[in-house]
Design a protein around this nucleic acid. Structure first.
Length: 168
DNA sequence: GATGTCGACGTGG
DNA sequence: CCACGTCGACATC
């Protein structure tokens, strides 16, 4: 049984809680917000974490901390977006090039990927985004600067935006 | 100018 | 088939 598709899940400690980073053999494939159950976070029983993943994890941790501190993310680990459809990957790719402190509307993103009418679909793709924060789905607002919704909880969206835009 | 309705795109249940 | 983290156009008042 080779762990060719083994997914490693490592915790990322931040001032905002413990994020959970998932790694495939191709890179970072998931990042979850802290779900702080009152219980103790069970540590990952990963006896042998491949060195490359440790490296990715270091990059993830660093980038995450920087973003949460409203700084430049710095180097990112390779992102494994193979889980998404072509459309979703296109959306996520577009989101990744949004500069810090900048926000777009769903309509803008839709245009950017060449599907100006697929605004709703863009919303769906954002909701399916496996890697929040690093893929700044929270920087996508509804038209008119409205917050819109957020799968991971709108509290987070507001919090993150408040930090990055410092006043919006 | 302020509302109300409708159609369009992609994905998942 | 329907709903959704939507948007923009049109119709009416």
């Amino acid at each position: 049984m080779k762990n060719s598709t083994a997914t490693q899940i490592l915790p990322v400690a931040t001032p905002d809680g413990i994020f959970l980073a998932s790694y495939s053999n191709h890179g970072l494939c998931g990042l979850d917000f802290p779900k702080n159950p009152p219980g103790t976070p069970r540590k990952a029983a990963n006896r042998e974490v491949p060195g490359v993943i440790q490296q990715w994890h270091a990059a993830t941790t660093s980038a995450l901390l920087n973003v949460l501190a409203a700084k430049k993310p710095g180097p990112l680990p390779p992102l494994d977006l193979s889980a998404g459809t072509d459309f979703q990957q296109a959306v996520w790719n577009a989101l990744r090039r949004i500069p810090a402190g900048q926000t777009l509307s769903y309509g803008e993103v839709a245009k950017a990927i060449g599907r100006p009418k697929a605004v709703r679909a863009v919303g769906g793709a954002c909701g399916a985004n496996p890697i929040p924060v690093l893929i700044p789905c929270h920087r996508v607002l509804a038209a008119g600067g409205k917050i819109g919704g957020f799968s991971g909880g709108m509290d987070w969206k507001r919090k993150l935006l408040a930090r990055e835009n410092v006043g919006l």
